[in-house]
Design a binder for these strands. Structure first.
Lengths: 155, 155
DNA sequence: TGACACTCAGTGTCATAACACCTATTTTCC
DNA sequence: GGAAAATAGGTGTTATGACACTGAGTGTCA
């Protein structure tokens, strides 16, 4: 793994600004982390996006959530929740049902099978996170999260 | 914009570890930055991926690069460079030609039109980077890039 | 009380990404 | 010098993402 982003991307020129450098570093790091996660999830037949949905719905048990509520809690923007949930329903990971007072709402819940899958994935996912960031100190991890949280506070 | 990632994602539980918190922060921040860039690029008819290719090929002028070399310099993994470049060639942004000693190699170059487009985008892209991260100090930006670079050094 | 705007979901359609497999050329190495 | 491995690029097919549009159900307020 090359030491600097410039080496990594084999860039000849320096970055135009520290802002640009930071943006590219964030995107690059996100891609490597997502790729590593993807490798862990692939044998189980789900994508990082689907895994994200399962985590959200596990956290919302036993009430379930409506489609837009799931969408708004996603880590990445997902404009087509309907068909994402269609696929997950077909795979037996979630169920949907119209119920309650507001007949527009469709509650989505994680199934027992979905719950089992996401529970099983806890250990390997934790492991891949630690394998990717385990060489950072607690203080460095705290700083990183704080800086990223600050970065998202743009007007 | 909510202050913490937990609020942002409306998570009830705390993160399982600082590693996990950092991973999710990186992915979330990357998504918001990419979405902002996408908004700038969309009126020009290109995606962040295509913009990345144009930047790479502008930096490689006048020699051009072969397909795999472009792929390896991409910010995010792109397994189907062929058809990405097909589309860009069709849009008049790049050209391809077999030349030189190794007849397997296809050199890709940015066209005058592609060059014009990416040059025009310099100002608005810089602007969006600064609008997103302009509230951070130079020292914070430097720390952020350094921590992310360090984060990618995993074994 | 009924027109209007709003919200929730879903659909049609096209663009892009992902994955496995294929062909041509070059390199390696006996 | 020729078979085998490696490398460059491309194709077929499926899955997923993006975007505009539709329609049902709900609130609201003149």
């Amino acid at each position: 793994m090359p030491a600097t982003l410039r080496d990594d991307l084999r860039q000849k020129r320096p970055f135009r600004s520290t802002h640009e450098e930071a943006v590219l570093n964030v995107i690059r790091t996100s891609a490597t982390l997502t790729d590593a996660l993807d490798l862990v999830l692939k044998p189980h037949g789900i994508s990082p996006t689907q895994y994200n949905v399962l985590r959200i719905l596990r956290g919302a048990e036993p009430d379930g959530l409506c489609r837009n509520e799931v969408r708004d809690r996603m880590l990445t923007r997902m404009p087509d929740m309907t068909r994402l949930l269609d696929r997950m329903e077909e795979a037996g990971l979630v169920t949907r049902s119209r119920e309650g007072g507001d007949r527009r709402m469709v509650l989505t819940r994680i199934t027992k099978q979905g719950r089992k899958l996401v529970d099983e994935l806890d250990a390997p996912v934790t492991k891949v996170h630690k394998s990717r960031l385990g060489h950072l100190t607690e203080h460095q991890l705290r700083s990183l999260s704080d800086l990223l949280t600050l970065a998202r506070q743009a007007g």
